[in-house]
């Protein structure tokens, strides 16, 4: 039964057990919990964060870090909406929006990898830069009245499931397989685990780092466009605080700020856990102000357990 032992040792297993326990508890605690509408609502709620988490895990595995994703969500959403308003065809506006997201990521990556400025400081600057730029170009006004064909990206349903959920699930699965199995993306684990060893093994460290930021920008762009389509409008406050929730989920899922560790499955379970906590507190009628507190406590617990179990071995 060595494979069983191996599974039990995984960080994902611990969070999976917590999630499962919450499922069982909530099923008994609230009649509304285990219903398809409620579960879909939970998934819809986490889908936009989960999309970003896919790229964020990869970035943090390589030792990177990006605080600017929430602002990139707002900026790409606003930019796409403005292009649509100017009459640009939907596919072109979406494509341009995605390129903008990727370009912002590349900008961050270049500063971190080539100029050598700390990732926290770089992305903290970008957080303000692009939130500010969003306010400047929109004059602080939300942009509504977007074409119907665009809104379908976020509002259509396939077999009763909303598109944001489908997009998130597809990206999560592809991302998990690639990060787990593809030699190309495994390079990031070497970089985060021991950069010097990675260089000696012939891994193009700087290029991989920049790619990590580029993908994070791109995925924040996807999230921003899907969010704008779902709301039917670009909001200037879209995505604020999102960076912290995404990073929290990724860390609960087993990634470390030091790099070299983490998985997309873990990050998904982390997002799911956070969404379930919110859902459970709502269903149980707990004061909404407790939610943020409980999520903080969850993060601290997850990291404590991890640190203590590592110390003992």
């Amino acid at each position: 039964m060595t494979w069983l032992k191996k599974i039990v040792k995984q960080r994902e297993f611990m969070i999976f057990m917590i999630v499962a326990a919450m499922f069982i508890f909530m099923t008994f605690a609230s009649p509304y919990f285990f219903t398809i509408p409620n579960l879909l609502a939970v998934m819809l709620g986490l889908s936009l964060e989960a999309i970003i988490a896919v790229a964020m895990v990869h970035l943090m595995v390589s030792g990177g870090f990006d605080m600017s994703v929430g602002s990139v969500v707002a900026f790409t959403g606003a930019a796409t909406a403005m292009m649509l308003k100017s009459g640009m065809p939907v596919y072109l506006a979406v494509l341009t929006g995605l390129i903008i997201g990727a370009a912002i990521g590349t900008f961050n990556g270049f500063i971190v990898a080539k100029v050598g400025i700390n990732a926290f400081v770089t992305s903290l600057s970008s957080l303000s830069l692009f939130r500010g730029l969003t306010l400047i170009v929109t004059h602080g006004q939300n942009i509504a009245g977007l074409p119907k064909s665009f809104k379908l990206i976020g509002q259509a349903k396939v077999a009763g499931v909303q598109t944001p959920i489908i997009i998130a699930v597809v990206l999560l699965i592809i991302g998990d397989v690639l990060l787990r199995r593809s030699r190309f993306f495994r390079q990031s684990y070497y970089i985060g685990g021991n950069e010097r060893a990675a260089r000696l093994s012939g891994i193009p460290v700087d290029r991989m780092k920049i790619l990590g930021y580029m993908l994070t920008g791109l995925f924040a762009g996807i999230s921003g466009i899907v969010m704008t389509a779902r709301l039917g409008a670009a909001s200037v406050t879209a995505g604020s605080g999102m960076e912290l929730r995404v990073i929290t989920a990724v860390i609960i899922g087993g990634a470390s700020l030091n790099g070299g560790e983490g998985s997309i499955l873990g990050a998904f379970l982390g997002t799911l856990l956070m969404a379930l906590i919110t859902n459970a507190l709502t269903l149980l009628g707990v004061d909404v102000y407790w939610q943020t507190f409980v999520i903080g406590a969850t993060l601290l617990m997850a990291v404590l357990i991890d640190t203590l179990s590592k110390r003992n071995r």
Binding site: R183, R186, Y189, G193, A197, A198
Partner: peptide, 25 residues
Amino acid sequence: SLVPTMSIAENIFANRQPVKALNMV
């Protein structure tokens, strides 16, 4: 010059892992 978080196998075959189709390890 090892990567502490990675397995024995992935350290030995760092960046030279045997691959199947699609560059999958």
